[in-house]
Amino acid sequence: MTSLPSVGEVLADAVVVSLPMRVRFRGITTREALLLRGPAGWGEFAPFPEYADDEAAHWLQSAIEDAWLGPPPAVRTRVPINATVPAVDAARVPDVLARYPGARTAKVKVAEGGQTLDDDVARVRAVRALVPNVRVDANGGWSVDEAEAALRALTADGPLEYAEQPCASVPELVEVRRRMPDVRVAADESIRRAEDPLKVVRAGGADVAVVKVAPLGGMRRLLSLADELSSHGVPVVVSSALDTAVGIAAGVAAAAALPELQFACGLGTGGLFEADVARAREPVDGELAVEAVAPDVERVTALAASAERSRWWIERARRCHGLLEQRGVRFFV
């Protein structure tokens, strides 16, 4: 057992970066993150600004695990990834997919505010013309009736691998599965933001679970949850929380340690950034190699956040560390 390092140790080499994005994604055009260094390497603390400290503390726990313990043992050396297609015009789809050479699966954002179902159908159709496996992600943006109508339209000219978080609540997901038995439903927010991650599965609201390292509190906690989900017959898809290269490496390491990996992982979001803290990890034949990542000093300097934002992140990390102390968090090798 490894004790929680002190807040001074955690923040001794901390740096805050601000990464510009190629397109608006999840409502933002820059992604901020605090990077910290420990005896095992680097970790990333980047809960979205709107998250309360109680939830954000899981992200700090994940960063500390990464930097102080490092990854769990791997069972594979490469991990398949999906291309990620933001809510862009259909005409821009080929340019987006070009950043994911060899990818055979694409996740397409749908239900974006200010857009129509026709926009979504056109985008999915453009993706389907270039990639054989298509999944969509609505981020809980539909009602049950809207989800049913949308999924019927989106599957009119081909199947979907699954629909991720079509509605926000667990009862709604259950109803979508009842109405649309031929479309797999994947739960994301209903797992990573829930006090009981298995609630949606026990209720019958998910065929697939989308899991992310940082929101769950680390790679080992993800593996533990994946084991529980497997006992319910629900496979997992390891995905990114719009991570920097450091966070992506943790996601790849977690995916590499899973006994089974049925679906391509959502770990190709590095292509959404104009610049990152380490060199771009180019997929080969749609796969990422399992390897440690260390931030490049020159890149970090160029991407440094403002002094005001750096102070904001440091204070947030201090508060979250205090919560981890209150919870008696310990780390197990």
Results as ranks from 00 to 15, higher is better:
Ala90Pro: 08
Ala67Ile: 00
Ala52Asn: 07
Ala52Cys: 07
Glu65Arg: 01
Ala57Gly: 10
Gly38Val: 03
Arg78His: 13
Asp53Cys: 08
Pro73Phe: 10
Ala40Cys: 13
Glu44Asp: 13
Ala83Asn: 12
Arg76Met: 09
Glu55Phe: 07
Ala57Ile: 01
Trp42Gln: 01
Pro49Thr: 09
Arg78Pro: 08
Thr77Cys: 11
Arg37Leu: 11
Glu55Tyr: 06
Ala52Gly: 14
Glu50Pro: 15
Val85Leu: 13
Ala33Cys: 06
Ile81Val: 12
Leu60Ala: 00
Ala67Arg: 01
Val75Ile: 08
Ala63Gly: 11
Pro73Leu: 07
Asp54Phe: 15
Trp59His: 15
Leu35Glu: 04
Ile64Thr: 04
Thr84Gln: 10
Pro72Trp: 10
Val79Cys: 12
Pro39Tyr: 12
Leu34Arg: 02
Leu36Phe: 04
Ala74Met: 12
Ala63Arg: 03
Leu36Gly: 02
Asp54Arg: 14
Arg37Pro: 07
Ala46Gln: 01
Ser62Tyr: 00
Pro49Phe: 15
Glu50Val: 12
Glu32Ser: 08
Leu69Phe: 11
Leu36Gln: 03
Ala87Asn: 05
Asn82Pro: 15
Ala90Gly: 06
Asp53Gln: 14
Thr77Ile: 04
Asp53Pro: 12
Ser62Lys: 02
Ala74Ser: 10
Leu69Lys: 02
Asp66Phe: 09
Ile81Trp: 03
Gln61Arg: 09
Trp68Asp: 01
Trp42Ala: 02
Trp68Ala: 01
Leu36Thr: 02
Val75Asn: 13
Phe48Glu: 09
Phe45Glu: 00
Arg78Trp: 15
Leu35Thr: 03
His58Met: 14
Asp53Ser: 15
Trp59Gln: 07
Glu32Cys: 12
Gly70Met: 14
Pro80Lys: 11
Gly70Thr: 15
Pro86Gly: 09
Val75Tyr: 08
Ala83Trp: 09
His58Ile: 08
Glu50Ala: 10
Ala90Phe: 07
Arg76Tyr: 05
Phe45Tyr: 08
Ala52Ile: 09
Ala90Asn: 05
Gly38Met: 07
Arg76Gln: 04
Ala90Trp: 09
Val79Phe: 06
Leu60Lys: 00
Ile81Lys: 08
Ala63Ser: 06
Leu35His: 06
Leu34Thr: 02
Pro80Gly: 13
Ala67Ser: 14
Ala46Leu: 02
Pro71Met: 07
Ala91Arg: 12
Ala33Leu: 05
Phe45Asn: 00
Pro71Val: 04
Gly41Pro: 06
Ala56Leu: 01
Asn82Tyr: 14
Trp59Glu: 04
Ala33Tyr: 01
Ala33Ile: 01
Gln61Ser: 11
Glu32Met: 15
Thr84Ala: 11
